[in-house]
Design a protein around this nucleic acid. Structure first.
Length: 571
RNA sequence: GGGCCAGUAGCUCAGAUGUAUAGAGCGCCCGCCUUUGAAGCGGGAGGCCGCAGGUUGAAGCCCUGCCUGGCCCGCCA
């Protein structure tokens, strides 16, 4: 991405590359000389949960836009509600942002500004623009009115400035119990925008804060804290999601009435994905009710879950780059994320052979005690990755699905009398098969053609397919976890009356395969390492894997044209 | 019922200040290639530009009305 440095002497900055309306606003501002051409954004998570792929879009926009225009992007934790926030979330959020590939300029907390925010609240009170209200939460709601009816003014709205000042100070000093009083902005109880009907600025909460401890017993509300925090940091473009559109008038009201640096809030549409839930609350339900194994379960759309599953930051960033920054509601197809994942993994994942559902093959005419080593390419997409040697012997395992007793039309793999190529090995022909008492094929007897070593026939004869294999005596056993969508519906929230989203959980989202066979080189694979199991998909070593008990997660399967042909023929 | 926002291919988005056959990526279909039925390469089919009026020589872009969808009545963010 080219960087467009603000340079007043170089003429107007022009839009290049893919544009979006936020970027256009920034370019306009630079060209108009606003803030001397300076651009500054921020990513403002609340440390009350784990980041998910929806947050990745915001991170991408905030950091990339700042970088493109030579500006700064701060990380600021929006920690104004001690009842929900914890240090562990702060740590995981920082880890996830870095993993995605971004580094913040300044690290701040809204709680850094509690002192300043308090002074400003006093200032607004002195100006007659804020008052202490003794109404209870229920009463405030009742007085607020409804969408169609104006609210009524609080009976405490017209207290004297002196009394307000005194009461507010005593709120701060802890003289009143939780919920007994609030500080409210005096705006307009008849405003069609509910946010403007004398919003609460401060509430009383005798609760330990993860950073300020017991220093405060009154805490600012989001609306009173966010804009001013932006302003203090001199954020020029405060980019947030659409649900805050209604809050913008209030955001501006505080800044204007305080006469402070005018940060500008701009709202964009959030990211949504098919078959995926992106709501912290619902994700928390999945964890609490045990539908998944934790926040980093590989089926979760959290960044930690995606990371454990084997997703790459590059794939996620590409999805974000492709997600439009606009104001339309959207649901992106999960398959698009998968496309970017495969695109990235195809370039970087070493190839390896692994048999997930083993079928024993005996090569009858191969010498009993011979072990050969055949040379295999590590990554056809990248010559620098070189080659490796893989042991070959008389008894092998192949994939159960690569043999059919009675092959359907267009099935190219092994069947009685058929010849196929063992990748990097030999051509083999199926001569016989053995069934167990249940009628399942448990062993194949084949012959090989010694002239085809390495996989080429000197007589130029062709085979219709190449299959993967592993030498039985040398293979390493492992467990493989196969994942599917967590939900069966594109929109998991679409349910029948009386049900909730858990009704759409996919009962088959996890399949555990034991006794899988991988080539010996994988014995020492490092946790997190990514591989392509040839013809099967991309897999990564799970966090819980050890050399004694290898565990792989299937990150994503390969595109499978055959499966689709078969599906279609069934219909 | 009130306010705010949005409505261009199956999906996500582009379409300066109105001007000729409305573009892209992904998906889909068809070929080619292939020691991964992967990857790669080539081609193709998809669009009452939400609807209806109006302004104009000319409208996806401007105006009006309507329809549809999203958000808003936490001392959450």
């Amino acid at each position: 991405m080219n960087s467009l440095e603000p340079d007043p002497g170089a003429g107007p900055v022009e839009s290049s590359g893919q544009s979006n309306f936020v970027r256009d606003i920034i370019i306009e501002d630079i060209n108009a000389g606003k803030h001397e051409g300076r651009v500054q954004t921020r990513f403002p998570p609340e440390p009350n949960g784990y980041l998910h792929i929806g947050h990745a879009k915001a991170i991408y926009i905030d950091f990339e836009l700042a970088a493109e225009f030579g500006g700064k992007c701060n990380l600021r934790f929006d920690d104004t509600n001690p009842s929900k926030e914890e240090t562990q979330y702060v740590d995981s959020i920082m880890e996830d942002i870095r993993w995605l590939g971004y580094e913040w300029d300044g690290l701040f907390y809204a709680s850094d500004y509690f002192g300043q925010l308090y002074e400003w609240a006093v200032q607004l009170t002195k100006a007659g623009k804020a008052y202490v209200c003794d109404l209870s939460a229920d009463e405030i709601r009742a007085y607020r009115g409804t969408l169609t009816e104006p609210g009524r003014e609080s009976p405490y709205r017209n207290r004297s400035i002196e009394e307000n000042l005194d009461l507010f100070e005593r709120m701060k000093n802890g003289e009143f119990p939780d919920g007994s009083r609030t500080l409210r902005a005096k705006i307009d109880m008849a405003s069609p925008n509910l946010n403007m009907r004398d919003p609460v600025m401060y509430r009383i909460l005798h609760m330990e804060h993860h950073r300020t401890g017991d220093q405060w017993c009154i805490y600012p509300m989001y609306d009173y804290a966010h804009g001013q925090s932006d302003s203090i940091e001199k954020v020029t473009h405060s980019i947030c999601t659409l649900e805050f559109e209604d809050h913008r008038p209030l955001y501006n009201w505080f800044i204007e009435n305080l006469g402070i640096f005018p940060s500008r809030q701009i709202e964009f549409n959030r990211l949504n994905l098919t078959y995926t839930l992106l709501s912290k609350r619902r994700l928390l339900t999945l964890v609490r009710e045990g539908h998944v194994k934790g926040w980093d379960d590989p089926r979760m759309p959290t960044l930690s879950g995606l990371r454990r599953r084997g997703y790459t930051p590059e794939a996620i960033r590409n999805l974000c780059a492709n997600a439009g920054v606009s104001k339309t509601n959207n649901i992106m197809q999960l398959s698009l994320l998968e496309y970017f994942l495969r695109e990235d993994l195809n370039k970087c994942a070493p190839r390896v052979m692994a048999v997930l559902r083993p079928l024993r093959v005996v090569i009858d005419n191969y010498p009993d005690d011979t072990v050969e080593e055949v040379e295999a390419v590590n990554n056809p997409e990248d010559e620098r990755c070189g080659t490796r040697r893989v042991p070959f012997s008389k008894v092998l395992y192949i994939e159960q699905d690569d043999f059919r007793e009675d092959p359907p039309r267009k099935y190219y793999r092994l069947a009685p009398g058929r010849e196929v190529r063992l990748r990097y090995g030999y051509f083999i022909t199926c001569k016989d098969f053995v069934k167990d008492a249940d009628g399942r094929v448990v062993e194949l007897h084949c012959t090989y053609d010694p002239a085809t070593r390495g996989g080429n026939a000197p007589d130029g004869r062709k085979v219709k397919s190449t299959i993967h294999w592993v030498s039985a005596a040398h293979a390493v056993d492992c467990e493989v976890l196969l994942y599917d969508n967590l939900f069966t519906k594109e929109n998991p929230n679409e349910v029948e009356e009386g049900q909730d989203f858990t009704a759409n959980l996919n009962p088959n989202s996890l399949e555990i395969l034991r006794g899988c066979k991988v080539e010996p080189g994988l014995q020492t694979a490092a946790v997190g390492a990514l591989y392509q199991f040839e013809r099967m998909g991309y897999f990564c070593v799970d966090r819980d894997s050890t050399p004694e008990k290898l565990v792989f997660n299937r990150t994503i399967g390969l595109r499978d044209t055959w499966a689709r042909i078969e599906q279609r023929d069934k219909r």
